[in-house]
Structures are given as structure tokens and as C-alpha cells.
Simulated assay, not measured.
Amino acid sequence: MNEYAKEEYEEAIEHFNEGVGTILQNNLDRNEDTRLIDLYIYRGDAFSKIGENDRARDNYKRGLIYAQSILAVEKVEKIKEKITSL
């Protein structure tokens, strides 16, 4: 992976961080908002792409816990596959 690509992933992670923060600060997660799950998945994917598998796994697990809590079955399966592939 070239350095430019890594910087792009790091920039994406910052945007995902902002999205997660916004959803949590505005209590949108309490409304069973699946966008939070997607942000955890995207952030996990970005960490995975730059070789930070522990951080990727942590994000996938956060998304998994939330997906399970709101019974988002298809998201649960998607996340389990990503964790297994790390």
C-alpha cells in the first residue's frame, strides 16, 4: 500500500469518527438508527485496509453489539463475516 492511499484511509476514519460522534451526541442511536452500524463497519473497513486489525475488530464488534440490540439481522451477518475475515 502506498503512503497516499494510507492517508486517504486515515482521512476517511476522521470523517467516520465525526459521524459516530454526531449520532451518539444527538441520541440518534436510541432511535434504532442503522447509520451508526454502517459507520462502525466503514470505520472498521478503513482500519483493516491500513493494517490496524485490532482497531478494525473493535469497530466491527461495536457495530455487532448495536446491530444485535436493534435486531438488524442482515447487519449482524455482514459484520460477523468481516470479523471472521480479519
Rank of each mutant, 00 (worst) to 15 (best):
residue 69 S to C: 08
residue 51 G to W: 12
residue 69 S to F: 09
residue 27 N to L: 05
residue 8 E to Q: 14
residue 13 I to Y: 04
residue 44 G to L: 01
residue 5 A to M: 15
residue 11 E to N: 14
residue 82 K to C: 07
residue 63 G to E: 14
residue 43 R to F: 05
residue 52 E to I: 00
residue 8 E to D: 13
residue 26 N to E: 05
residue 16 F to A: 02
residue 59 N to E: 11
residue 85 S to R: 15
residue 30 R to F: 08
residue 65 I to K: 13
residue 51 G to E: 05
residue 40 Y to F: 09
residue 8 E to Y: 09
residue 47 F to S: 01
residue 79 I to K: 00
residue 72 A to K: 06
residue 61 K to I: 05
residue 1 M to H: 15
residue 44 G to T: 06
residue 21 G to T: 02
residue 78 K to C: 12
residue 23 I to T: 10
residue 51 G to P: 09
residue 47 F to I: 01
residue 50 I to F: 12
residue 54 D to G: 10
residue 73 V to M: 12
residue 8 E to R: 11
residue 86 L to W: 05
residue 79 I to H: 05
residue 71 L to T: 12
residue 22 T to N: 13
residue 58 D to L: 11
residue 19 G to V: 00
residue 72 A to D: 07
residue 46 A to Y: 09
residue 13 I to M: 09
residue 65 I to P: 04
residue 24 L to I: 02
residue 45 D to G: 01
residue 34 T to V: 14
residue 37 I to E: 11
residue 84 T to C: 13
residue 79 I to D: 08
residue 39 L to E: 03
residue 80 K to S: 11
residue 33 D to H: 02
residue 85 S to D: 13
residue 63 G to H: 09
residue 56 A to C: 08
residue 14 E to A: 14
residue 9 Y to E: 00
residue 10 E to P: 04
residue 1 M to D: 15
residue 46 A to Q: 02
residue 10 E to D: 00
residue 6 K to S: 04
residue 68 Q to W: 05
residue 40 Y to P: 03
